[in-house]
Design a protein around this nucleic acid. Structure first.
Length: 265
DNA sequence: TTGTGTTTTATTGCCTCC
DNA sequence: GGAGGCAATAAAACACAA
């Protein structure tokens, strides 16, 4: 087990100060303001205390030592034992001090790296959120257009459906469509009661229009998603947006026949 | 001057590797 | 089993506002 060599704790704390030229050398190497001021004050302290320092207290490394350690860390963030001994000798430090400095420096670097990664992830998330918001707006516009077209179509059907014979023919066509989708509900479950049951429960045309809107929005949104970022869809959303389920309710190829849902027309 | 927050240096305990 | 790395933490040094 490694443990601190307590035979000479004094020596571990006393760092030999470097030359006056080295110590007075000002640095602008991108240290934080706090760190820089710390280094500055450290230099002054070194001046007055280095030679005669009483060493029980924890001491900070001088500027020369820190700069040399930083330089070595840039080259390699882990030290070979030989390099550690060499560096310790050059800087007047205990090898263990050098090792501890590198260890702490790696920890600081890791923290910074995590902060950077978090920033990147956050930026990506914000961009994605913006994309999603834009898509929602487009979807609303498209849904509104669909709603208008349906209303228009409904009016046309009312105008052209006076003959009983015509009504009968359309009714048959609707029955076929009903058979086609009667085994499907909105969530993709094979629940025979889902759609047909809804039919019986829908009491007003207003509810019905909402039903259509919901369904259409999902189709449109689903198609946009599939074209735009298909890999971002959750499995359950892919199921929800699957064209087979939605098309049977409102197919693009076959315009919806609203007669069934507007029997009064 | 003092309280408080931040940074740096060092220790401890655990883990992995050889 | 020893050496070394890492996470958590203590403690000293330092900055700074009130």
């Amino acid at each position: 087990m490694k443990r601190f060599n307590s035979s000479d704790p004094l020596a571990a704390f006393i760092s030999i100060s470097s030359s006056k030229e080295e110590r007075t050398e000002k640095t602008n190497q991108g240290y934080s303001r706090g760190f820089q001021s710390m280094l500055d004050s450290l230099e002054e302290e070194d001046y007055s205390e280095a030679a005669s320092h009483v060493g029980e207290k924890k001491r900070r490394l001088n500027l020369h030592q820190v700069k040399a350690l930083e330089k070595n860390f840039e080259v390699e963030n882990k030290l070979e034992p030989e390099k550690k001994l060499k560096l310790a000798g050059e800087l007047g430090m205990q090898p263990r001090q050098v090792a501890i400095w590198f260890q702490n420096r790696r920890a600081r670097w890791k923290t910074k790296q995590l902060e950077r990664d978090y920033g990147i992830l956050k930026a990506n998330y914000e961009a994605l959120k913006l994309d999603y918001s834009n898509l929602e707006q487009k979807n609303e516009v498209l849904a509104q257009k669909v709603k208008e077209l349906k209303a228009k179509l409904s009016e046309e059907n009312v105008d052209s459906s006076h003959s009983v014979k015509e009504e009968h023919r359309v009714s048959e066509s609707d029955n076929n469509a009903s058979v086609h989708c009667k085994n499907r509900d909105f969530s993709g479950n094979n629940n025979p009661s889902a759609i047909t049951k809804d039919h019986s429960n829908i009491s007003s045309s207003h509810e019905l229009m909402n039903l259509f809107q919901l369904s259409d929005s999902r189709v449109i949104l689903g198609n946009i998603y599939q074209v735009y970022q298909p890999h971002l869809m959750k499995p359950e959303e892919q199921s929800l947006f699957s064209t087979e389920e939605s098309c049977n309710f409102f197919s693009v190829d076959q315009a919806p026949t609203l007669h069934r849902y507007f029997p009064e027309h």
